[in-house]
């Protein structure tokens, strides 16, 4: 067997990856102030609108999905 990749086995690599990820978020937040916006809706032009919307959307998504799970979750053999 070929040698395995193990880069994410080392916690410092995971940390490095996350660090890079957080840094890119900060860059995106800063760049937002320097671009020309051609907004169709007024709020599109608001600073950091998409960052906030993306974050809130995904938190809401998970929150509602967890709620939904209470009602729709069944055993794997439910239909058998």
């Amino acid at each position: 067997m070929k040698k395995e990749l193990k880069i994410f086995d080392k916690p410092e690599n995971v940390k490095r990856f996350l660090g890079f990820f957080y840094a890119s978020l900060v860059v995106l937040l800063i760049v937002d102030f320097f671009i020309h916006k051609h907004a169709e809706f007024p709020w599109e032009g608001a600073p950091e609108f998409f960052a906030v919307y993306g974050f809130v959307s995904c938190v809401l998504l998970i929150f509602i999905a967890k709620l939904l799970r209470i009602f729709i979750k069944r055993d794997e053999n439910h239909y058998e």
């Binding site: 990820f21 890119s24 978020l25 995106l28 937040l29 760049v31 937002d32 671009i35 599109e44 950091e48 609108f49 998409f50 960052a51 906030v52 919307y53 993306g54 974050f55 959307s57 995904c58 938190v59 998970i62």
Partner: peptide, 13 residues
């Protein structure tokens, strides 16, 4: 930038 923000901050969540 808008699309990247939407996606990356979703990833942050």
């Amino acid at each position: 930038v808008g699309q990247l923000q939407l996606l990356m901050f979703g990833a942050l969540a």
